[in-house]
Simulated scan of single mutants.
Amino acid sequence: MRFVTAFCAPGFMMTMGVSITLFTGSRKRIGWSDARILQHFAIRGFLLALINFWMTMSFVAPSGKPLLLTTVLFALGIDMILGAIVLLAETRLTSYLYQRIENSSLPQHDKDRHQYRLRLASVLFYLIAAVILAVVITAVTPVYDGATPPKESDFSFWYLLWVLPYTDMMGDGARIGSVYPPLAWLSVVLWGIFVGKVMTEFKLGFNDNIKFHTVLSVVLLAIFFPLRALGGFGNINPGLAHQPGELPWVAFFNLIKYPPDVAYLTWNLGANHLFLVLFLLATSTEAAANAPGPWSLRGLVSRVVPLDAWETIKSPNNPVMSYGVSSFFFYIGHFQVFFFAAWWMKIFGIEPFAPGLEYWVAWVAGMWLMFLGCRWYGQFKASQPADSIFRFF
């Protein structure tokens, strides 16, 4: 289960970075100013952080004092704002330099060459920044030697909040349960902006996107396997790769997520790019309509899922589509639904977390309630203005 769910957080962060790029470009085309775009991301990001604190406000330290707990919502919110600031600053600088070149007395072919290099540099900036930040986070993270566990007092509050995950919430003097510090995950958001910039700056079509994400997946996985096998730099705790009593392949993929080290990121981002390729092939009518042969990958896709099935898949009555359209609403709501289900089961003497018939009945009933709620909310938010806060859910 841990192996499967480890793909999620890097996927969240990377696709958020891509979305920041696509949203900024689309709003600039309809005349939004940089200030309005930043205001949008600031409201959305702070809303995520606020809901993080609302959902965790019941956590208290043994001393009885409130405990600050940072979940994935906190990192997503803060990194959304930081990513937007970096992107807007970079695009403004790039536009200024682009115009300087355009207004220069250089011959047109020299202008074109310098402007292309400028565009390329604006894309590579995010790639380089993402790599450097990931390496720095890995390098500054202390390695637990198995003898002397670190204490919260060994680190400053702000270092734990921004950089280093620490979750000994029951320790004496506990002040913070830092699960997702924003700077530890900012490299993945910058990587997503890099991906989005390549897709938009070079106007990648369907085939180009397939090739681009395939190349990224292959490169990242080619880095991961020798990096993990050697067990040196890039692995915050290389000893996990050789745990006694564990199956060798289980130990090999037992990677460090808190904070994400280079080995973790190369494996999970490589897998996420592969998932994107599969999703593109599985959900694109172009993949089916342009299938060149029955035994090609596209041909197989079109044989498995006919063209007329896509409308059914995209219907709001499809639970998966309803969950996806209202994903943040689902995230908040599913805690309430299943906490209530667990409380109700305990009243009747049923252990809510023991796998059995009652467990699966409660799960199916809860998912059905969430489907009805998400379908309603998806229809409600679709009726709201484009900048309505309800669309954030």
Rank of each mutant, 00 (worst) to 15 (best):
residue 193 I to Q: 00
residue 195 V to N: 06
residue 195 V to P: 12
residue 196 G to D: 12
residue 196 G to P: 04
residue 196 G to Y: 08
residue 196 G to I: 02
residue 198 V to D: 07
residue 200 T to Q: 14
residue 201 E to L: 11
residue 206 F to P: 00
residue 209 N to F: 01
residue 210 I to C: 04
residue 211 K to L: 15
residue 212 F to E: 07
residue 212 F to V: 13
residue 214 T to Y: 11
residue 215 V to A: 15
residue 215 V to Y: 07
residue 215 V to H: 13
residue 216 L to A: 09
residue 218 V to H: 09
residue 218 V to C: 14
residue 219 V to Q: 15
residue 219 V to C: 12
residue 222 A to F: 13
residue 223 I to L: 12
residue 223 I to K: 09
residue 224 F to V: 13
residue 225 F to C: 09
residue 227 L to M: 06
residue 227 L to S: 09
residue 230 L to K: 14
residue 230 L to D: 11
residue 232 G to H: 15
residue 234 G to C: 13
residue 235 N to F: 03
residue 236 I to H: 11
residue 237 N to H: 08
residue 237 N to R: 08
residue 238 P to L: 09
residue 240 L to T: 01
residue 242 H to V: 08
residue 244 P to Y: 00
residue 244 P to G: 01
residue 248 P to Q: 03
residue 251 A to L: 06
residue 251 A to M: 06
residue 251 A to V: 07
residue 252 F to T: 01
residue 253 F to A: 00
residue 255 L to E: 00
residue 256 I to S: 11
residue 257 K to A: 11
residue 257 K to D: 11
residue 258 Y to K: 04
residue 258 Y to N: 05
residue 260 P to V: 03
residue 260 P to H: 00
residue 262 V to R: 02
residue 263 A to R: 07
residue 263 A to M: 09
residue 264 Y to G: 00
residue 267 W to I: 05
residue 268 N to V: 03
residue 269 L to W: 00
residue 269 L to V: 00
residue 272 N to A: 00
residue 272 N to T: 00
residue 274 L to H: 04
residue 277 V to T: 00
residue 278 L to Y: 02
residue 279 F to D: 00
residue 279 F to E: 01
residue 281 L to V: 02
residue 283 T to R: 05
residue 283 T to Y: 03
residue 285 T to H: 04
residue 285 T to P: 03
residue 286 E to G: 02
residue 287 A to Y: 01
residue 287 A to N: 01
residue 289 A to T: 02
residue 290 N to Y: 08
residue 291 A to D: 01
residue 291 A to K: 12
residue 291 A to Q: 05
residue 292 P to E: 04
residue 293 G to D: 12
residue 293 G to N: 06
residue 293 G to C: 05
residue 295 W to M: 05
residue 295 W to N: 09
residue 297 L to T: 13
residue 298 R to S: 10
residue 300 L to W: 15
residue 300 L to N: 13
residue 301 V to A: 15
residue 301 V to M: 11
residue 302 S to G: 14
residue 302 S to A: 08
residue 302 S to V: 05
residue 303 R to K: 13
residue 304 V to N: 14
residue 304 V to A: 08
residue 305 V to E: 08
residue 306 P to E: 15
residue 307 L to D: 13
residue 308 D to N: 11
residue 308 D to I: 14
residue 309 A to R: 14
residue 310 W to I: 05
residue 311 E to N: 08
residue 311 E to H: 10
residue 314 K to H: 09
residue 316 P to Q: 09
residue 316 P to S: 07
residue 317 N to H: 14
residue 318 N to R: 06
residue 318 N to V: 07
residue 319 P to C: 08
residue 320 V to E: 09
residue 321 M to N: 06
residue 324 G to N: 14
residue 327 S to Y: 09
residue 327 S to P: 10
residue 331 Y to N: 08
residue 332 I to E: 06
